[in-house]
Amino acid sequence: MLYKNPLYRKKRNTYPLQVSCGHCKTSIAIYAKGGKGNLIKMQLPRIIESQIDLKRNKGHLRCTNCRRELARKGAYNENITYWIIRGKVNTKRLDNYRI
């Protein structure tokens, strides 16, 4: 990953999740996910590191390789949030990743 997120805040009871493009399988981000459900949204303070400079990204989340739109930018609980478009991303739990 190229960019460490300066806005990342550690959260209890989370695990690292690798998020990649569903089309070309390019790794996009490592996210601190909590709970058992599917990945629906990615809040900016929980993104650990990414391929995209999140401070400069003004629009929606796009794949760095194939330029497909993966998530739409919005707000949730006063945090910048990327709402995942269903079927556009793959996720994989990283058991040996150190936060």
Rank of each mutant, 00 (worst) to 15 (best):
Q18W: 05
V19I: 12
V19T: 03
G22Y: 05
K25N: 13
T26W: 13
T26Q: 13
S27G: 15
S27R: 10
A29Q: 00
A32K: 06
A32Y: 11
K33L: 11
K33A: 00
G34Q: 00
G34P: 03
G34E: 07
G37V: 10
L39A: 12
I40T: 14
I40V: 13
K41R: 15
M42Q: 07
Q43T: 06
L44T: 03
E49D: 01
S50M: 00
L54G: 09
N57D: 05
K58N: 07
K58M: 08
G59T: 03
G59E: 12
H60E: 09
R62L: 05
R62K: 11
R62V: 05
R62F: 11
C63W: 04
T64S: 02
N65E: 02
C66R: 06
C66I: 02
R67M: 02
R68Y: 04
R68E: 12
E69C: 08
E69T: 14
L70Q: 13
L70D: 11
A71Q: 01
R72D: 07
Y76R: 12
N77D: 13
E78M: 04
N79A: 05
Y82S: 01
K88T: 13
K88W: 05
N90S: 01
N90D: 08
T91I: 00
T91W: 00
K92N: 04
N96S: 11
N96Q: 12
N96I: 02
